[in-house]
Design a protein around this nucleic acid. Structure first.
Lengths: 295, 295
DNA sequence: GCTTATCCATACAAATCTGTATAGCTGCCA
DNA sequence: TGGCAGCTATACAGATTTGTATGGATAAGC
């Protein structure tokens, strides 16, 4: 009851939390379902807590289990980081680097950069975490992050890429069909594409763009990528990166003088990784590529 | 070679790094020595790296092993934090809280505060990490930290306690024997107690106290605690907290007008722990006690 | 209402991991 | 130089853990 707990138990615990079932966790870890069941039972006994309420449709975590989850996740991140570090050990650019970025950056901007990087360094493996949630570099959820806010944490190497400019855009087809707005007053008559839930961005946009509010949107969507797709499909007028609009299919910027938003863009990396050739090479390549992207 | 690695292996790996031998690690973890040997062999095979060079006097970590160490330490911290969280789960003040502070604060100031805290909350267990190295709260090396610098990290709850004043002190016996310095010019004729290695503090002191340099010290010692003990033993004149000097054995402050250094003191805690009653109670108790200490 | 697909729990055999005992090596000290 | 203490590596028996197979119970789909 008071002796140290094997780390395997924590591993199984996290898997059950993620899969919400013993069977799923067993599949995930590549072991049999009774094994996981025994691990959870042993962990519960050692901790003196009930971690899950059993049911036929799976296991529901108790409040206690939820409190412990973040620690198990931290262990998982560290284990993954250890493996990446091991794979990348030695001279030369090889191994795995884990990059995180927002959905738009990750899907629209990074792929060609990463492809070119891989072509130059064939032994490099890239893990791309596309998420609007800010990953924690200190907990090693990623090695390198593209961020839209200046990092305030210590222990991080941060380099400012520049400003990403956002503007209102529409597809030529749409403008042909519905006309081009000449002033902000025209906007309410157009099909607007915006977010469903209130975001920091939305609050910022409202200041310069009073018409930009939820009830005015003809399309409400929280995925920036889907919004971009809607704009490209000629669904209406929406906000996207000016640099992206220049690509094919070519989008037309509207009301450029009335609306412009600039986001600070930073590339960050954990200090320890400066010595790893593969991380450094990736960092430099992304920096150059992103800088070119922001113009 | 490419399948997931059991977390037990990492646990053994860290133990070997810490003990620098298979036998020591086995003792540490409470298993047999061949078990650890097999774990290391399995880990080396899985990672495709040589982690240690075997010898009859123990295992010497390779460069690769040293690179991986911090990740394993992070796993260890998270595992320990998980256990503390589990022990402390539920209503009421119980479980374990891990507090870190400098040597002087930890040995001279905190003990009575912690004793009183424990008397009020009998179910509380306290882990006190006395170290001048700044523990990483984000990696959960501790729950609560007393720090002498304003924290710049996010995700931390920080509260300013006040300023700890440092001054020159000596025991009455010493002053009887060797006289009391009347001005800074008298200092070179006295037995001075100072640090052996250059520290940020020493560099700061030099500015207001030109005489305060390494070659002028009669006693050189890097332990702040031992310096305090030397002062109390009447060995000479040294720097210590004004608040501490008022205790028994009573120390006399000298050259108070010529030398005074004030250190900002902060109490910090991870944001997540605000909801844990035992951490909150400890935080508040330490805050009150420290504030009284700094006056 | 029946079938099917999941899920958890249990029993037993098999595989794995662990501990004990021992040998071989090195460094230290008298 | 001999004895002691510490370390690693190996062989083999024992204990623990794991996997397979199965039963029971629930929920969804036809």
């Amino acid at each position: 009851m008071d002796k140290p707990i094997g780390w395997e138990l924590y591993r199984s615990f996290l898997a059950v939390l993620r899969e919400a079932s013993l069977s799923g966790a067993a599949r995930d870890l590549g072991v049999a379902q009774p094994t996981i069941g025994r691990h959870i039972a042993a962990l519960e006994k050692s901790l003196g807590l009930t971690l899950f309420t059993r049911s036929q449709s799976g296991l529901a975590p108790t409040e206690a289990a939820l409190e412990l989850r973040s620690h198990a996740e931290a262990m998982h991140s560290s284990a993954a980081a250890l493996r990446r570090a091991a794979e990348s050990h030695g001279d030369g650019v090889k191994g795995t680097v884990r990059v995180t970025a927002s959905e738009v950056i990750g899907c629209e901007v990074l792929p060609p950069l990463l492809a070119a990087l891989k072509a130059t360094h064939p032994l490099l493996t890239v893990e791309l975490v596309v998420s609007n949630r800010v990953q924690d570099l200190l907990r090693r959820e990623a090695d390198i992050a593209v961020r839209m806010t200046a990092p305030r944490q210590e222990l991080l190497v941060a380099r400012r890429v520049g400003q990403v400019e956002l503007g209102l855009h529409a597809h030529p087809h749409y403008l042909q069909r519905c006309g081009t707005p000449r002033s902000l007053d025209d906007l309410p008559r157009h099909a607007l594409i915006g977010h469903d839930e209130e975001t920091p961005f939305l609050r910022a946009a409202k200041k310069t763009l009073p018409a930009w509010q939820r009830r005015a949107f003809a399309f409400r969507c929280d995925s920036d990528l889907a919004q971009l797709a809607l704009i490209r499909a000629g669904a209406g007028i929406g906000v996207c990166q000016v640099a992206l609009a220049r690509r094919e299919p070519r989008l037309v910027r509207v009301l450029a003088r009335s609306f412009s938003l600039k986001l600070e863009t930073w590339l960050t990396m954990h200090e320890d990784l400066r010595k790893s050739p593969h991380c450094k090479v990736t960092f430099d390549a992304l920096f150059a590529g992103l800088q070119q992207h922001v113009g």
